[in-house]
């Protein structure tokens, strides 16, 4: 596995790629907050937010529909909001009986569910765009500039750096288990469910011990090279006037989206 196996960065020469990472992180969060603030069934504002997203996609030069492909990730969890369709407000549409529950689908509930889905869908896409246009170490530096504690960003940097190493180990463990789990066609392989879970647990324990000992070696190697608890970067990450302009423009647009959402 390559060191960049988990990278979601898509290189391109674009305004969004060049934009200061702190500005990008702040704008992504602002967009998500703006979505959360919009009232239910503010279709015009949702459409405006979607246009904002499309414009951002366009600015990234990755294609208008770039974020669309990965945007259905959050869909399974959105089912948790499905029960919102049984809102007690509004007129009843359909009533039915399920186990011990009397359920009534209402118009307000349906609107609410649709709004939740749209908010979630828009927010995921902006987050997809952020990691596609910003390298992960840059996001971490941006978080540092935005006052996230350095201890935390450094831990995350280590996590990112060694994730692929440990993932490789996991795949080796899984392959070893597979290789030892031969079976005749049509016959059950392996032991009971408990036994299988136990095997997985032993693998986790083994992975833990190996990772723990690895962290010792890593620390010793880094201490030998002068590590004092800080990771440094040569990248200055200064915010240029054009970054400020971009930020201001985007925030004004978000404010306008809010306005269309709340004025009827």
């Amino acid at each position: 596995m390559h060191a960049d196996a988990f990278d979601r960065f898509h290189p391109a020469e674009s305004r969004l790629h060049r934009l200061n990472p702190s500005v990008k992180v702040a704008l992504t969060v602002a967009f998500i907050i703006s979505n959360a603030l919009l009232p239910d069934a503010a279709w015009l504002a949702f459409a405006a937010a979607w246009l904002f997203l499309l414009a951002a996609n366009d600015q990234s030069r990755l294609g208008l529909w770039f974020t669309f492909r990965r945007s259905l990730l959050a869909a399974p969890f959105a089912l948790a909001a499905l029960s919102a369709i049984f809102s007690p407000l509004g007129g009843a549409l359909v009533s039915f009986h399920l186990l011990w529950l009397n359920l009534t689908v209402t118009d307000v509930g349906l609107l609410r569910f649709a709004s939740i889905l749209i908010r979630s869908w828009l927010s995921v896409q902006m987050a997809v765009l952020l990691v596609a246009t910003t390298q992960f170490p840059d996001i971490l530096h941006a978080l540092e500039h935005l006052r996230v504690p350095k201890a935390l960003t450094t831990i995350i940097a280590f996590l990112y750096r060694y994730l692929f190493v440990l993932t490789d180990k996991v795949f080796r463990l899984l392959r070893a288990r597979e290789a030892r789990s031969a079976g005749l066609p049509g016959q059950k392989r392996g032991g009971s469910l408990l036994w299988r879970a136990n095997v997985a647990g032993n693998m986790a324990g083994q992975l833990f011990v190996r990772s723990y000992e690895r962290s010792d070696r890593i620390y010793n190697a880094m201490a030998a090279r002068g590590y004092t608890g800080q990771l440094r970067t040569l990248h200055p990450h200064e915010i240029k006037p054009s970054d400020w302009n971009f930020l201001t423009l985007a925030l004004i647009l978000l404010a306008l989206i809010q306005l269309t959402g709340w004025i009827r």
């Binding site: 831990i155 280590f158 750096r161 690895r214 962290s215 620390y219 880094m222």
Partner: peptide, 9 residues
């Protein structure tokens, strides 16, 4: 810090 980073991984 390195220990917790590796443990997170």
């Amino acid at each position: 810090i390195p220990l917790m980073g590796i443990m997170a991984a």
